[in-house]
Structures are given as C-alpha cells and as structure tokens.
C-alpha cells in the first residue's frame, strides 16, 4: 500500500469510526433514558419521533443554541480547556479498538480498526489515564466548592481503581502473550470440546472479568461509583458550573468512555468478534462486526441496568472496597494465572 492510499484509507476509517462512535454516544443516552424509564415504570422520551428516537438530535440542537455561560469567578483558560480535554481523550481511545477481521476491498487489505499497533492495550490505558485531567481541571478551574469536591473525588477514585483495572488485565495478557488487541482476540478463537468458546472468561479469567467490570464502572464515574457527581450532596459535581455545549462535552466524554470500556471488555474477555459464521460471503463479512456490536450493546445495557438498580456507595466504602478487596483479588488472580501458565508450559 503506498502513502496516498494509506492516507485516504486512514482518513475514511477515522471519519467512519468517529461518526459511528458519536452516533453510539447519542443513542446510548437515548437508550439509558428509555431503559431507566421502563425500570422505573415510566415511558422515557416518547414525543420526538417514533419511540423518541429523534430525541438525541433535539437535545444536540438545544445544547448548541443554549446560551454559553462563563461564570465570572472561574480560571478561564483551564475552564475552557477542561471539557475539550475530556472529550478529546474519550474520543481518541477508540482509534486502536478493532471491531472485526481484516477485510479486503478491491486490492486494498485493511483491518477493521483505525490502526493496529502492537501495544494497543497500553495505548488505550494511557489515554484513559490522561482522561482524568479533564475532570480534575474542570473541578479546580470552576472555583466553586461543589466542583472542587467533585474533581477531587474523581481524581482520587480514578487513580485508585486504575490499579485494580490494570492488574485485572495482566492475566489476559499472560494468556495471549501480546499487547495487541487483535492478537488477544485471535488467541480466543476456537472452542473447548467443540461447544464452549475459548473466550478468556472461560479460560479461568472470570474473576478478572468481574474485577475489570467493577473497576471500569468506577473509572467511568458511573453508578454505584458516581460520587464525583453525586446529585444529593454535590449538585452536579465537577460540571456544576458548566452549561450548554461545554456541559454536553462532559456528557459525551462519559458515554464515549462507557463505550470504550464496553469494547475493551468484549475484546479482552468475551472473544471480541468471534461467533457463528454462516450464509453468503457478504453476510460472513458483516457477521463478526454484528457479534461484536451485540456484546458492546450487552455491556451498555448492563451499565444502564446497574444504574437503575443499585444505590450509591459511601465514600469510605468506595475506597475500602477498591484498596482492600479489589486490589488483593486482582493480585491473587494474577499470581494464580501466572502459576498455571508457567506449569502448563
């Protein structure tokens, strides 16, 4: 592939990935309102379009045309930069996420992801670890007590749970022997005894899976770990002083992070895009993407389900759970996995 085709293919893939991601963000907000509505025995959005399907567009238009208030007491450069940072890091991490096999269109062969790097997982972890700056700086630069407390809680929580999150992934890395997300998915192809798929969750990583899921909820500041934006005590937490599109950017960042986390969970533990293939060649090419999308949808649904069901942790419970339970479990899982792999080889 020469340079020109490389650039054209990359630009096309980037545009498609961004479009799909932003649409997914908009419609996961719709899905959340709808599902939480039904859990609470009400309808959710119904007025704009059939089943309220055009609600995200209406909301987007509203955010764009609302007055953009900047309170006089904020530290302006960082106040403006913070939502941009949050949404930038949230959208960048999708760049190394693969969504399907390598496809051949004409004489161009390209993987279904923006770029396949051999340290893909580390890049996602690096970008999400930078994502905390958006939240922390928003809290600090707003110069308001609610925002500051929200920002402090968010950074403490994200730094604490990042350790368990990272350690829970090491078991998967040991099994696959690579940082490349594509290689990790390829290592999960096939089945045990013909019917149990060789997903990492069935290769003894089930504890790691639940540690990852719990830590990921805390990383994305979602219920039951949504203390940084606890409405009952902090108004809205770190984005209390934000309005219009700047507020919407934090919202987008949160949902984009949820989608990234769901993608990673599917890739690392549930075999990525592996699933039954049948039908004509075109269907066979599309099915892996469909199976992957189905898994991501399932994770998003569980996110919303948890939000509709669980109450919020108390702050000391949050810290004690992260450091005294999740971290030792993650280390124990890592040691046991390493031992098993060492004995087997």
């Amino acid at each position: 592939m020469n340079l020109t085709t490389f650039i054209i293919v990359s630009v096309i893939k980037t545009v498609i990935a961004l479009f799909v991601l932003l649409t997914a963000v908009a419609y996961s907000v719709w899905l959340e309102r709808k599902v939480v509505g039904h859990i609470q025995n009400r309808w959710g959005p119904t007025r704009v379009g059939p089943f309220g399907l055009l609600q995200p567009l209406a909301d987007g238009a509203k955010f764009l045309f609302k007055e953009d208030l900047i309170p006089p007491h904020v530290y302006k450069p960082l106040y403006i930069a913070a939502p941009m940072l949050a949404v930038m890091f949230a959208l960048t991490s999708i760049s190394v996420i693969p969504i399907g096999n390598v496809v051949t269109i004409g004489n161009i062969k390209t993987p279904l992801q923006i770029t396949d790097v051999n340290i893909g997982l580390l890049i996602v972890l690096g970008i999400t670890s930078l994502g905390v700056y958006g939240v922390a700086l928003a809290g600090w630069s707003s110069n308001s007590k609610y925002s500051l407390l929200g920002g402090l809680r968010a950074s403490a929580q994200m730094v604490s749970y990042e350790i368990s999150l990272g350690l829970s992934l090491v078991g998967v890395l040991i099994l696959a022997g690579s940082f490349s997300l594509r290689a990790i998915v390829d290592a999960q192809a096939g089945t045990f005894w013909g019917f149990i798929p060789r997903w990492n969750i069935f290769q003894g990583q089930i504890i790691a899976f639940f540690i990852y899921l719990t830590a990921a909820y805390a990383e994305t500041n979602r219920v039951p770990f949504d203390l940084p934006e606890a409405e009952t005590e902090l108004v809205a937490g770190y984005h209390t002083e934000y309005s219009a599109m700047k507020f919407a950017m934090f919202f987008m960042a949160e949902y984009a992070n949820m989608i990234t986390v769901a993608c990673l969970a599917s890739l690392l533990f549930l075999g990525g895009w592996h699933g039954p293939l049948f039908g004509p060649p075109l269907l066979q090419a599309i099915l892996p993407v469909f199976w992957f999308g189905l898994r991501v949808f399932m994770f998003l649904f569980i996110y919303i389900w948890v939000r509709g069901t669980l109450p919020r942790f108390r702050y000391d419970q949050l810290m004690a759970f992260g450091w005294k339970f999740l971290l030792p479990m993650a280390i124990a899982n890592l040691v046991i996995t390493a031992l098993i792999v060492a004995i087997r080889s």
């Binding site: 690096g126 670890s129 930078l130 922390a136 920002g151 402090l152 950074s155």
Partner: peptide
C-alpha cells in the same frame, strides 16, 4: 504516558487542588 503523565502528575495536580 501511563506512569508519569497519567499517575504521578495526576497526584501532583491532586495535591495542588
């Protein structure tokens, strides 16, 4: 990036805040 920018500097910013 993970260790310095993502962890150590976050703690710096945290302490300043």
């Amino acid at each position: 990036v993970i260790v310095y920018a993502g962890a150590i500097m976050v703690l710096f910013v945290f302490v300043i805040m």
